[in-house]
């Protein structure tokens, strides 16, 4: 059966991708952030996953307000980078894992989740940036197949944090029951604290961000029990997307080892973070 070898988390701030596009990695503004992500990429190189399930949100690029799925599962064979207004970014097309996507949909429905099934869609910075942080910028092909899980964290009602956590548990059952010898990682993306709208724009909360990075490993039940309002208050209106990390955490065992944590404030207007978790050996 397939094996879950790690749970990863990373911010998906578009400016991180733009900084890579413009060659700003070594500049004073960006070097401290990127240097702290090196161990996450090294972990992926050393552990060689075959498949990445990436939990993220579309930012008004592939989905408009005419159709807003709360959870959507990618069942496509490929995902192209989308045009977000500047033209598609010059990164390779992502190969999809349609067979696992369909298997995941089957298992989710049996677990009383009712996701949207997606077979043709392009992906924005929400997926691209974490992939670049964990796998670098390959010339021709990414080293893993991907299965995107799209979460609506923009148009209210957004899902409950507790529901994201439950989705992760169902995702784990799907990985454990998938007839394959592939090695999986699950990547939670987004956050940390930021607010882009209203007169509180520019709000960040380093203390809450650091507590989140500690508790996503040690006390995820606390984070899952918080309300959406708690997330908005603590992490900002856009930082509430941090609840998507709970899907990743829900897929992991209760007891995990933290292999890497990184925090940097600000990346553009956002508290930027990364985490690498492994299930604690029995």
């Amino acid at each position: 059966m397939a094996q879950l070898i790690g749970g990863l988390g990373a911010s998906h701030v578009p400016s991180i991708g733009a900084a890579l596009d413009k060659g700003l990695r070594e500049t004073p503004d960006w070097k401290p952030f990127f240097d702290g992500t090196v161990p996450g990429r090294a972990w992926c190189e050393a552990n060689r996953p075959d498949v990445a399930v990436v939990i993220f949100n579309d930012h008004g690029n592939a989905f408009f307000l005419d159709k807003v799925p709360t959870f959507a599962i990618g069942c496509a064979e490929e995902y192209r980078p989308i045009d977000e207004g500047w033209g598609p970014r010059a990164i390779p097309v992502f190969a999809g894992h349609a067979a696992f996507g369909w298997h995941l949909v089957d298992r989710l429905v049996e677990s009383h989740f009712d996701p949207m099934i997606v077979q043709e869609i392009e992906v924005d910075h929400g997926l691209q940036v974490p992939m670049e942080l964990f796998f670098g910028r390959p010339e021709t092909a990414w080293p893993v197949k991907i299965v995107p899980i799209f979460v609506n964290v923009i148009q209210y009602p957004i899902p409950l944090p507790a529901r994201c956590y439950q989705l992760g548990r169902a995702l784990r059952q799907a990985i454990d029951s998938f007839d394959s010898d592939e090695r999986f990682v699950v990547i939670g993306t987004g956050g940390l604290s930021h607010q882009l709208q209203g007169s509180r724009a520019g709000f960040t909360n380093a203390e809450a961000d650091r507590a989140f990075l500690a508790d996503i490993a040690a006390d995820p039940d606390r984070l899952a029990a918080m309300s959406r309002e708690d997330y908005v208050r603590l992490f900002g209106s856009e930082g509430a997307e941090l609840m998507m990390w709970l899907v990743m955490r829900g897929a992991m065992d209760r007891e995990v080892e933290v292999r890497h944590t990184h925090y940097h404030l600000p990346a553009s207007m956002t508290g930027a973070g990364m985490i690498v978790l492994e299930n604690r050996a029995a």
């Binding site: 209210y156 009602p157 709208q197 209203g198 309300s227 908005v232 900002g236 209106s237």
Partner: peptide
Amino acid sequence: MDPDRIPDTPL
């Protein structure tokens, strides 16, 4: 949730 209970934060 009442979206505007958080000040200066238009949800």
